[in-house]
Each structure stands twice: as structure tokens, then as C-alpha cells.
Design a protein around this nucleic acid. Structure first.
Lengths: 373, 373
DNA sequence: TCCGATTTGTTCGTATGTATG
DNA sequence: GCATACATACGAACAAATCGG
């Protein structure tokens, strides 16, 4: 329910949580807020009044409204033995995310932790909402997959606030470079390299590459693609690289491939390297429609070695992603960070280093020798 | 300082303290208070709003303002704003479960609830462990998908204990018959009927049916399969029914189908009705290996209308399962049960009835006319 | 010390939206 | 469908406290 006073309320709360308003600092006056949000004084007072009631602000007649100091309000911190870990991912129900989550959930659950899941649907606003929730309510730690990790993140302040409040967080799959956080990732560049090298070694020289470019995995995989070409002394045709954003994933790559396949036959690529298996499955339909045989007419390789490699008539060659293992490792690290926090200080330095998984090539039937070889 | 709203406030508070207003009793309406004290509505709302904030009253739109029950609000003061709902399913990361969970999680999260997930992996011991946790720690409600709902449940006592402790629970997908709980399900029998009837109407008379038999959905879908045969006056070949347990789902149906397809051609069924899409995808491989064309040589129909209907070269005809909608409805009902508990008693009877979703047939390319027709 | 500008506090009026019974 | 009751929102006025000059 989006009421005006609620919008004002959330906006003020956000500014407190992201550190714009520091404790005991004066916030905007009522008349300023009226202008800012284009609402009546009544509405502003409702919003501010709510926040005062919940301990976020305090008012002083004649002086102004001030940010409250919530530093040690947490008398309820140790609500018994209720330990909470949050997992934030872009999606929870799609593709390989369920596997990653399961790996973490199983471990955390066994260790007696409560696990809360949130999915940002690749939206920074949602990410902010959840970070606010974590800062507000009591959580012992967060495992987070960054949203749109390739572009600069508007919620950096919230992460810094997590650090200030001593709430440990771990990033998986990717990380925001500015933060240099503890992270559990796959070596995406090497993965992209293995993908392309496999095709090159089969004899392909004209390899179409599809890469998502709004998370940081995409550019890294593309870098591997380029490196493999260079390492084998093969020229790269710039038009062989197609990039797309998450919101276009259902349309752009499909129509781009269709255009290429319907173009002059001589210029048709003999192989395709895909950002992931999900895209590969989508592109299969384009190839089928044109009655091209895989891998005789065209080879195609996926990424992540997900369950999707196995659902179609063509079994996909792919690159192994640790999936549930990644989740489990993240969970283990998280718990050792949580216990370190309590035992205050030094610990196994082992536990506090980032992990980079090594990708492996898994060959199935979607890749083969090029036609004219 | 005697402000008008303070006078009103004190007067109402007095009536609560001297027992004029008993817990859950409706107090005077805002317009009545306006008359009584000769003040504006705004002033009344200020006074009442303060009392609501301090837990003396609660308001219900359209109904009135009521005296709160402050009898055992002791622990509530600090922990009270942390609302916890548990979701227990057999799996969290597989198949359609992520979608169901997402539907519930999104709604509960929006309403400010804290959601904890647990997966039993179809094991009664795990189910018991989680129920113990819920009984021990503070949870406001549970959304649960029964584990092995077809066979008698060893944890019935735990459910009865939930009732005794006044912790509301809702079952989704299936329910333990003995408990007669509030449940959100799909009409599985009708789904099975639609599946089979679709094949019969296409002209199939020899229809192989695969049904899981350790959850209650399986037998119901099978019942629909049988009913459709009877409704169309078609004899049922007993050997056309294959049942399997969850732990055999990767082996038994596949080997059984292989044996049948490798048998005498005359006795080969012309169509297959599957317990769900996941099984359907697995069986596709068996059919492909024998180079049979779908749907020309054999039709196959799935169940749940999951994302798997769309990943293969053959797009699966299936039966629609509400998935995320089921989760959301369960979450809504859960919250109205939780709030009823607090306002103690009467409520919309609407909210407290079970929901049975109506399945729909979704036709794609995996079903067609039988060969000799 | 007083003034005036600013800021929050109290109070009234009015209107429309939405849930309940 | 209708009356009732609470929810949201705009406008206006005056009071009381604060703060810099």
C-alpha cells in the first residue's frame, strides 16, 4: 500500500539507514519536507510522527526534528538463541539459484540457524529494501549475490552501514569491486576461456559469443573468450560478439541469432559460446526452426552445467559451476565469521579469505567438429 | 499541560483502567467522542492514535476502535515486532517449489514478516525436527507442505501440539487427512481427469499412466485417470498403470517405460500420462533413444505446467498448477489467521476456509492424434 | 533583553477513499 | 445497496519554543 505518508516515511528511514542522517543531526524541517515531497504539512507530520513513535527520530519544539541514536537500543539482540542468517539473491526460483541456496540452507539449518530468503529480481530498489530490513531487524549475517554487479551500486552506503554495525556479509557469484568483500565466486574468466578453447580445439574459427553485460560475470566470461582467441592466434570478428542485458534476455539474443542464421551462409558461424545454459536452451529453438543439426551444422556450448544441460534432445556441453557447493562454502564461512564476532577478534585466517572455484569443461553432445573439416 | 487531546486521552485511558472498557470491547466511535468532548475529529484521532501506539487500543477499519487485551503482553514489548512465519516444504530448490515459495515469501516479506524456510527432503525425521523447532522457538505460524502425505504420519502429535499452543498452520499441495487442516491445494483428481480426457478425446485408447504413490497427489491424479476412462467407456488395462516412490523417481519409471516400449509393438501404448513435468522430461529420453516421434508415434502429457514444459524440442502439453499464486494465497490466509489470534476470536469466515484451485489443460505440441487414426 | 524568523505543537474545517456489517 | 467507521489527505490558523542578531 503506497500512501503518501508512507513514501515520506520510507524516504526518511532510508536516509537514516544509509547514513545521510547521523545520530543527533537535524533532519529537514517540516516545511522543507512539504516542498520536497509535494505534500501537506499534515502528511509530513504523520510520517515523522510514526518514526518518532518507533524511535527513529525525536522532535524538539522550536528547534527541529533530529535523528535518534540507536546504537545500543539492541537490548533484544540476543533474543534467546534465535540465530538468523539472510540470503539475498537476484532470483530464488530460477535456474541454478535454487541449487546454490539449497547448499547454504541445508548447512545453516543443520547448524541451528534460521534462514531467510529474499530475491531482488535484479532491482536495486529491492536490494535496498532488504538491506534496510537487515539493518533494522536482528540478523547475524548476510549471504548476498550482488544485483547488477557490473554497474555501480547505489546502495554502497548500506553495505558500509553493515560493516559499521558489525554484521558480517559474504558475496557470492560476483562482488561489488569498491567494497572488496569476502566473496565466493567461480573463475568466470577461465570458464569463458575453457568454453572457447574447447570450440577452437575442435577446429572452429568463427565462434559467435553471447554475453550478458550487466552482471560482472558476463564481461569476465567475454574476456576469457577473447583470451582464448588470442592464445590460439585466431582473429576475432567483432560482429561475433553479442551482448545483452538481463531484461532483454528473452528477446535480444534470440532475434540477433535469428538474423545471423538467416544471413549469408558463408558468413554463418560454426559454433556458439553462450553466457549460460538458460540462454543456450532458448537459442536451441532458433536453431531447430531452421532445421540445422547440432552439432553437425553448428556447435553450441553452455555455461554452469545446470540441470538444463540434460533436459533436451541435445545434451549440452557446458562449464561446471559449483552451485550447491558454493552455497555450502558460503554458509560455512558465514558461520565462522559470526562466531569470530562473538569470540572477538583473531581466528583462523583460513576462514576469512575469499574462495574462487575452478571451472571445468563437461563435454556432451552439443559440440563437435565443424562441418567442412 | 492540559491540551484537548490529552484530556480525551486521559478520559479514555481511565475508562480502560476502571474496567468500563473490557478487552476487545468496542469503544465509542470517533464521531461520538467528538460530541462527548466537543472537539474536532482530528483531535480525537490524535488522542486515540497515541493510545493505539502505546498498546491500549487497536483500530479496525470499518468496524471500530477496540480495547486491547493487555493481560499477557509482557514479552511482547521488545520481541513483539519481530513476526516469524515458517515455511516447510519437501524441497526448496527443485522443480515448482521455488515458485510456490516465492509467492509466499514475497507477500509475507512485504507485510513485514520474517520468513524462515525449511526443507524436509521428504524425510519424516526432518519434519519432526523442524516442528520441534517451531514449537520451541517463537513462531507466529507455519505454512507446511506435508511430507509423504499418502502414508500415515508419525508426527501427528506435533501438529496437535501446534493447535494446543495456538500456532496456526496451513497445509499446501496436500494434507494429512486425519487433521482436517486449513489447506490450499490443487484439485488433483480433476487434473488427472483432464490429462487423460484430453488424450482420450484425441482418440487414444491405450494410455500408459505414471503416478507417484507416496504423496496424496499421486493417487488422486490416478483416480482422475481412472474416472476419465470410465466416463468415456474405455477399458483400462491394469498393466498400463505404473506407480513409483519418490526415492525411485530417477530409475523405476524410466526402466519400466523402456521395458514396455521394447515389448511387442502391437501392445505398445499410444499415449502416456505423467505424474508431473519432471518425470515427463525424464521419459522423453527413453522415447528419443528409440527414435519414436512425439506426438506422431506417441503422445505424452505432463502435469504442473512448469518451466520444464518449454525447455525441450517438444513443448509439453500439461496441466496448470497455480505455483506462486498458491504460495501467495497461503500467505494471505496465514496472516489473517495470525491477526485473528490477536484480536481473539471472530473474523471473516471467508479467510478460514480451504482453497482448492481448479486445474486447466494447457495444450502444446507433445500430444496429438494416434498413429493409426 | 528583546525582536523576528524559524520550527514544532495544537486545533479546527473539509473532502474523499475503503473496509465492515 | 447502504449507513457506519476508520484511513488518507489538503488547507488554514494560532500557540509555544528556539535561536541568532
Amino acid at each position: 500500500m503506497q500512501t503518501k505518508y508512507n513514501i515520506v516515511k520510507q524516504a526518511i528511514k532510508s536516509k537514516i539507514l544509509d547514513g545521510t542522517f547521523q545520530p543527533h543531526q537535524k533532519i529537514s524541517s517540516e516545511s522543507e519536507l512539504m516542498k520536497q515531497f509535494g505534500v501537506s504539512r499534515h502528511t509530513v507530520r504523520l510520517a515523522v510522527g510514526d518514526l518518532v513513535n518507533n524511535g527513529w527520530l525525536y522532535r524538539e519544539q522550536g528547534a527541529g526534528t533530529f535523528c535518534a541514536d540507536r546504537t545500543q537500543e539492541n537490548n533484544n539482540t540476543s533474543v534467546g538463541n534465535q540465530k538468523n542468517i539472510a540470503i539475498i539473491t537476484t532470483y530464488i526460483s530460477d535456474y541454478i539459484f535454487p541449487s546454490i541456496i539449497r547448499g547454504a540452507e541445508t548447512y545453516l539449518s543443520q547448524q541451528g540457524y534460521h534462514v531467510s530468503l529474499f530475491s531482488t529480481n535484479n532491482d536495486h530498489d529491492n536490494e535496498r529494501r532488504f538491506l534496510e530490513k537487515i539493518l533494522t531487524q536482528h540478523f547475524d549475517g548476510v549471504i548476498i549475490e550482488p544485483t547488477k554487479s557490473a554497474i555501480s551500486n547505489p546502495n554502497i552506503n548500506y553495505y558500509l552501514n553493515l560493516e559499521r554495525q558489525n554484521i558480517p556479509y559474504i558475496m557470492i557469484n560476483a562482488y561489488y569491486d569498491e567494497l572488496e568483500p569476502l566473496s565466493i565466486t567461480l573463475d568466470d574468466e577461465k570458464g569463458g576461456f575453457l568454453q572457447t578453447e574447447h570450440l577452437i580445439e575442435l577446429g572452429h574459427k568463427d565462434i559467435l559469443g553471447f554475453f550478458k553485460n550487466d552482471d560482472s560475470q558476463g564481461p569476465k566470461r567475454m574476456k576469457g573468450y577473447l583470451k582464448a582467441h588470442r592464445a590460439h592466434g585466431i582473429d576475432i570478428n567483432p560482429s561475433n560478439i553479442v551482448t545483452y542485458k538481463t531484461e532483454d534476455k528473452y528477446d535480444k539474443p534470440v532475434s540477433d541469432l535469428a538474423a545471423i542464421l538467416d544471413g549469408p551462409e558463408g558468413k554463418r558461424p560454426t559454433a556458439i559460446a553462450c553466457y549460460n545454459d538458460e540462454l543456450t536452451i532458448a537459442l536451441l529453438d532458433v536453431i531447430r526452426e531452421r532445421e540445422l543439426n547440432i552439432p553437425k551444422d553448428i556447435s553450441i556450448i553452455g555455461f554452469d552445467n545446470s540441470f538444463l544441460t540434460n533436459v533436451s534432445e541435445v545434451k549440452l556441453t557446458s562449464i561446471k559451476h559449483p552451485q550447491s557447493e558454493m552455497g555450502e562454502v558460503a554458509a560455512q564461512k558465514m558461520l565462522s565469521m559470526v562466531s569470530n564476532k562473538h569470540s572477538n577478534g583473531k581466528s583462523n585466517k583460513n576462514d576469512l579469505t575469499s574462495v574462487v572455484f575452478d571451472p571445468e569443461l563437461v563435454v556432451r553432445s552439443s559440440t563437435g567438429l565443424p562441418k567442412n573439416k
